[in-house]
């Protein structure tokens, strides 16, 4: 190990311990378990800084945080699945004694042995870890894929196809149309005004139409069709730009959250 690495590691350990002691002292009187609380806040700050250190370059502190994240989150989702699905939904359908043990309410309709099927399929899925009989895990996999296909067929047809098309047919003169005279006498460019509403509805209707033209590849994009396709590209470009801006702002708000944690909860500077 290089001398610099050892010095940095020693400095990190000393800072960690100092922070732990100071935070525990700050929590004394506020919390019963102030030593543990001090450790947790210090550890969370350490993990935040360890992940941020990747901005400089890949380093052992980032790798530590990354590996810890993988292990802890895998176990977290396993536990959540066990308690929310297996215990809450499966156990009361299969065994009264187990339901009593886990203190979950028994079902009014009684036991349902049909629910042994997913347990058997689930156990078969675990056979994937075996090289010799791993192929049996295709059966539960087929069940999962089949359920996804069957559910998505209807769900997407309803929500992503029919509903989206029906929502596109909006009144192009606006909902509160009171005639051409009233329209011109109330003409302004306020965000909630009738003109803006009308333009919005036109943009939505033509935008969806032209966007779909762009995605239609069975005909050459020439003439009127080509013009529609070009407008479709413009609409899609605005969409990508807006999505990009929205995503960046979401990430920045997360960053603000972490910086607030560091300066308020950990360092108590703000």
């Amino acid at each position: 190990m290089r001398k610099v690495t050892i010095i940095v590691m020693a400095a990190v350990i000393v800072l960690f311990l100092a922070s732990w002691i100071l935070k525990a002292g700050a929590f004394q009187g506020e919390h019963d378990h102030y030593i543990i609380r001090g450790f947790l806040v210090t550890f969370a700050a350490f993990l935040t800084l360890a992940v941020m250190s990747f901005l400089y370059q890949d380093n052992p502190y980032y790798k530590f945080a990354e590996h810890l994240f993988v292990g802890v989150s895998a176990a977290f989702w396993m536990c959540m699945g066990f308690w929310t699905t297996i215990v809450q939904n499966l156990v009361p359908r299969l065994s009264t004694s187990l339901a009593d043990f886990f203190e979950v309410p028994q079902r009014a309709e009684g036991l349902n042995f049909f629910f042994y099927t997913p347990v058997i399929l689930g156990i078969l899925l675990l056979l994937r870890l075996s090289r010799k009989i791993g192929w049996i895990s295709r059966w539960p996999l087929a069940f999962i894929v089949g359920t996804t296909a069957g559910l998505n067929f209807i769900r997407y047809l309803r929500s992503d196809f029919i509903k989206q098309i029906s929502s596109t047919f909006v009144p192009l003169l606006g909902r509160d149309w009171e005639g051409i005279g009233a329209f011109f006498s109330n003409l302004d460019l306020s965000a909630t005004g009738q003109l803006v509403m009308m333009v919005s509805n036109w943009v939505i209707f033509l935008g969806v139409f032209c966007g779909l033209i762009y995605f239609y590849f069975s005909r050459e994009h020439k003439g009127v069709f080509g013009a529609g396709s070009r407008v479709g590209i413009w609409i899609l470009m605005i969409t990508f730009g807006a999505s990009f801006g929205y995503t960046v702002m979401g990430r920045i708000s997360l960053l603000v959250g972490r910086i607030t944690f560091l300066f308020r909860d950990w360092l108590e500077l703000i």
Partner: peptide, 14 residues
């Protein structure tokens, strides 16, 4: 749908 959720938990364990 519930079967799917239960098998998905086994997939988490896998």
């Amino acid at each position: 749908t519930l079967f799917f959720d239960i098998i998905a938990v086994f997939a988490f364990f896998l």
